[in-house]
Design a protein around this nucleic acid. Structure first.
Lengths: 212, 212
DNA sequence: CGTGCGATGTATCGGTCCGATACATCGCGG
DNA sequence: CCGCGATGTATCGGACCGATACATCGCACG
């Protein structure tokens, strides 16, 4: 997952590690806390070894000009290679099971702007299926095993169930949007005031033209 | 975290690994998918080495009646020791930073019935603080860096922000409940067809009868 | 009657990622 | 001039996951 995220970000512009982490945090802040250096740097090394990214020299002058005054350990700027772009395209298009867990889905979604519509639809539907399964599991527990669990545990399940239902609805809207061919126009998540006094978009009725 | 969860579950009754995993999944289904055997068995080994759990023979020595019909091959039943109970009490009471991340909070919350009220309150407030910080981070990004991000990424942030606001409200209600001394009485999460015509679950009267 | 198959059950291995830690530089205010 | 917080690179041990292997049991189906 980290690999995909790094490749995606470096496609926008070359960066050094620290910067990468900040961009990563900004882009993925909704789904994970903050990427650790303990995974970032080893991954960068791995990507470099695989030839998907390269170091780009940052200091303009050569090392001979500014000698031993300060053995300045320069920032290491990475840029993506042609092979790296291929790798990214491959990773972003193929959807394995890990594509639908919380982190995997989040990363894929964050790069939907670089993903073709068919793949977007496939991923959204896969994610929906997965969340629906989790939802059913929670309903089962709340229905059948409720008496075996204490009030706090039940409350946790209830909250989780609520989050599942909410996410399914969110996904439904996104899927409908994709099918209608429109870009993601703030589907009224509930808060975060994106208004849009848009004059009636095409009615959501029977528009079954797209075939995935 | 796994250690805490296992110790907590074994305190209810002895179990073997497979059973443990199922109970774990039922109890923590709201916060994580399903615990992997790749972590479960090594952890069991570690707990056993530390003396916090022991293997319990499954068939009593005097089981002369029922022959080989009952399963007596292989299953390794674990039970918690007195030291294990102490360890659990220590882990459940102390709150480090990891207590407030998604998984850590979920596990602690799932065992709130075995946690004293002051600790419950402390954990709920710590969690709230953490979520509020994440929420502010997302608001920052949505406010200040919105033009740098594409529509999909923004939508992801919006959804995450919504989830944060929702969780903060949920925590507020739980905190208010704790302060008023009541047990968690379904705080109207919004959906989730609630059954539970339960007439006031026992007030925070802990079952503190067990004394190691 | 057997045969295969899904549930139960224990176990390991390689790999990803995290948290703690260390260390060095830079700009800035006291 | 000194400290201190932000910037910046890097490693190490440990937690956890996903794939895989293997063995037993009950039972449905031919």
């Amino acid at each position: 997952m980290l690999e995909l995220a790094i490749l995606g970000l470096l496609q926008e512009s070359p960066m050094h590690g620290y910067e990468l982490r900040k961009e990563l945090t900004a882009k993925l802040g909704a789904i994970r806390a903050a990427i650790s250096y303990g995974s970032l740097y080893p991954t960068l090394r791995r990507l470099q070894a695989a030839g998907w990214i390269t170091e780009a020299a940052e200091t303009p002058a050569t090392a001979e000009e500014v000698p031993a005054l300060t053995s300045r350990r320069g920032r290491v700027v990475y840029k993506i290679t042609a092979e790296g772009k291929e790798r990214f395209a491959q990773l972003i298009a193929q959807a394995g099971p890990e594509t639908y867990d919380d982190t995997g889905f989040g990363v894929h979604f964050a790069f939907f702007a670089r993903t073709d519509q068919a793949t977007r639809l496939r991923i959204l539907e896969g994610r929906r299926r997965k969340i629906e399964e989790r939802r059913e599991g929670l309903r089962d527990v709340l229905g059948r095993a409720a008496e075996r669990l204490d009030a706090y545990t039940l409350e946790l399940q209830r909250h989780g169930l609520d989050a599942c239902e909410r996410e399914v609805r969110w996904l439904e809207e996104l899927i409908a949007n994709e099918r209608s061919g429109r870009a993601p126009t703030v589907p009224e998540t509930g808060t975060a005031g994106g208004r849009r006094e848009d004059n009636s978009p095409p009615p959501p009725g029977e528009s079954r033209k797209e075939r995935p």
